[in-house]
Each structure stands twice: as structure tokens, then as C-alpha cells.
Design a protein around this nucleic acid. Structure first.
Lengths: 195, 195
DNA sequence: GCACAAATATACAGATCTGTCTATTTTCTT
DNA sequence: AAGAAAATAGACAGATCTGTATATTTGTGC
């Protein structure tokens, strides 16, 4: 998992520019030259920092994963101590995200779509993010006293991924509201009913 | 919505070959030349049948939409008359699909991911399929006596799309099982509890 | 000022991309 | 068998793609 992360201004600037273009237009749709022109950086500088476009994409995905989860966790923390509210805060966070100006879905789902071979490094890197989020959901479900936290986390993950895709295609925040309401109902079921 | 569909052997063969390659490797990843070589068809033949690669993709998406829904509806019909079993048959159908040899997710979700601009014709064509499936789900939810069939159909759609993405990335059929169990629980809630 | 490292511009390779053009051959209809 | 339609091969345009090579400039520390 990329043991070293040699940060530098140029490297960061390249990653920021590449991220913006990749997210807006797609990983395969954006070429190296476009990134270089937009970032005003020479080609050799890019290839001195990254061995290939593929490694650049992977570095961006790993960075986004860290930022994404840090932001999500911050929202959960700000929701207080009630475990139910903390779990539902995940959906509130998504609703706010869906409403942002340039929301274009989830780069990890899109990476999995653009590199459909499950053995591809980009595909695998992208999916590790989803596993990490599901682990977070399982922790929250455990804290909320769910009977089968892993199963609930799995279902909530399905809801979230579906909501992301739908919010993207419909340019709407309402899938987050639907998912949140469903999550609340499922959590109550998992707390009260028998398996 | 493509009023005319001038079917011909060459055209069908091109669409079948292109579909296979697009689904396996991605829409942007597969070039015209690759399709032509694989199909053993001359380039001008393709451009006599389709004005552009984009139109070829759209034609394929519309064909797949029709086939997909016909197969799904057939499964629902074969489930008998019990409205609950008919609705749950949708999830059984997906489980079987996830287990097919070359399952690589949903071409419509992948098209939305590869063409992230919601105003793009390919993006819009792909999403129309999802709307059609959701309409089918709403009909089944109505028949099953759901209190708010549209809301239930929306939630089930989220579950299904999430399950497709997850089944693709994990190469597993179990997301269909999770989604089915959740759907059964939600349906029971929608039949019994108050809004 | 000097040495070293980083970034630059530029050209280039070799492949690939979508789409067009032309001229020839095959196929089908009548 | 004759004429019309469809499909063919193959070259071509012009752009784009990733990645490399080279030589120069810039910036920094000593």
C-alpha cells in the first residue's frame, strides 16, 4: 500500500490538477498532456514523480480515500455520542456531498467501472476504499447495538453505493434521504427483532 | 428514441461483437479497429450502419435494455401469481446474473461512470434503463400492496444498483442475497406499519 | 561563485484513435 | 445474365495517446 509518499509542491499540484480533471471527465478520457497543460508543468516532471499514468491514478485514489474517510469520520464525531445519530450522520454527510456544485458521483465506483477487470491494480485500489467505509459502518452498527453488525453494514453499503450512482445520474440529493430513512428503519429492526 | 431500427445480419453481428468487447473491457477502452478486427468486418461497413462510435454505443445500450428487461420480466412471470414472490424474483434473477461466468457489472452504470456528464447522450440513454427498471419495481410494489410503492421502488433500486457494483468488484453473488433479504423486510414493513 | 538537484522546453518514437475516401469485389434481386 | 446494392481492402488524414531522450535553464545550499 504505497509505503512511501514523498510529498513535494510540484507533486501535490500535479495530483490536485489531475484529480480535478479525472473526476470531471473520467480517468480514460483525460490524457497526460491535458493534465500537464492545465497544471503548467513539464512532462518530465510528471514522470519524475510518477512512473506511469496508472501509478498517478492510484496515488490519487489513495489520497482521496484518506481525505474522504477523514471528512466522513469528522461528521460522525460532530454528531455527538448517540450511536444511532452517529450512524445516520453518515447519510447526512452524503446528502451534503450530493448537493455540492461539481458532484459527479464516486471516483471509486467510476474507477471500478472504467477498469472492469477485478485484477487490475486501479480496480483493486478503488475497491479497498469501499471495504474501508464498510468497516467504518460495521463499527457504527456495533456501537448502535445491531444484532448482526456486519450484515447491517453490508446492506447500508449497498444503499449508499446505489444512492451515489443515482444521485449522480439524476443530479439530486434525494437518494440520500431515501437511503437515510431506510437505514433508520433497518437499524430499528436490527435492534429489536430476532434474527 | 431511435424510431427506426434497420436490422441486418452485418449490423447485428457488429453489435454483438462490439457488445462483448465493450462489456469486457470498457466503452472508452475498446476502439473501433479492435471491434472490426474481432468481427472481421470492413470499416466502411460499420460506418454505413452507424454514423459514429457514439451512436453504435447508444444502439447497443438500447438493445441491451430491451433484452435485459425482457429477461427480468420473464423471471417475474415464472414466479407465479403471489405478488411478494414476484417482487422477490427480481432479486433471484440478479443473483443468477451475478453468478454468470463473465459477469462484469452493469453496462448502464458503467456507461454513466465513463460518461460522467449527465447531459451526454450516452449517459442519458444508460440512465433511461434504470428508470425503466424502477418503474417495473414500482408496479410490482403496487401489486404487493406497499403503502408507498414509488418510495419502495426507489429504495429497492438503490439496493439493486449497490448490489450490482459490489457483486462486480467482489466477484460474488452474495450481495444479491443481502439485497433480497432486505427487500423482503422492507416490503413487510411497507405492508404492515403506518407511514 | 559553484556544485548539485529540480524543473524546463522540445523533439521524438511508436502506437492508437475516429472517421473519410476510393476503387474493387461480392452478393442479391430480378 | 444484368444491374443494383452491399461489403470489401487499403490507404489516408489528422489528431491523440503514453512514455523517452536530450539539452538547457532555474533554484538552492554551501
Amino acid at each position: 500500500m504505497s509505503a512511501i509518499a514523498p510529498s513535494s509542491p510540484k507533486r501535490d499540484h500535479l495530483m490536485a490538477t489531475a484529480w480535478r480533471l479525472f473526476y470531471r471527465d473520467g480517468l480514460r478520457a483525460v490524457g497526460i498532456d491535458t493534465i500537464l497543460a492545465e497544471a503548467c508543468v513539464a512532462k518530465m516532471t510528471l514522470y519524475n514523480h510518477f512512473p506511469s499514468k496508472e501509478e498517478l491514478i492510484i496515488a490519487i485514489l489513495e489520497k482521496r480515500d484518506a481525505e474522504f474517510r477523514a471528512s466522513l469520520i469528522a461528521r460522525v464525531e460532530s454528531a455527538g455520542t448517540d450511536p444511532v445519530q452517529r450512524l445516520l450522520a453518515v447519510f447526512d454527510w452524503h446528502e451534503a456531498w450530493f448537493g455540492t456544485e461539481d458532484f459527479k458521483g464516486c471516483i471509486f465506483i467510476r474507477a471500478v467501472s472504467e477498469y472492469p477487470d477485478p485484477s487490475h491494480p486501479i480496480h483493486q485500489t478503488a475497491w479497498r476504499h469501499k471495504i474501508a467505509v464498510k468497516t467504518l459502518l460495521a463499527d457504527l452498527a456495533t456501537a448502535a447495538g445491531a444484532r448482526d453488525p456486519a450484515a447491517l453494514a453490508e446492506t447500508l453499503s449497498l444503499l449508499i453505493d446505489g444512492a451515489i450512482v443515482t444521485a449522480h445520474a439524476t443530479q439530486s440529493t434525494s437518494p440520500a434521504v431515501s437511503a437515510r430513512a431506510t437505514a433508520a428503519a433497518l437499524l430499528q429492526l436490527a435492534q429489536t427483532s430476532a434474527a
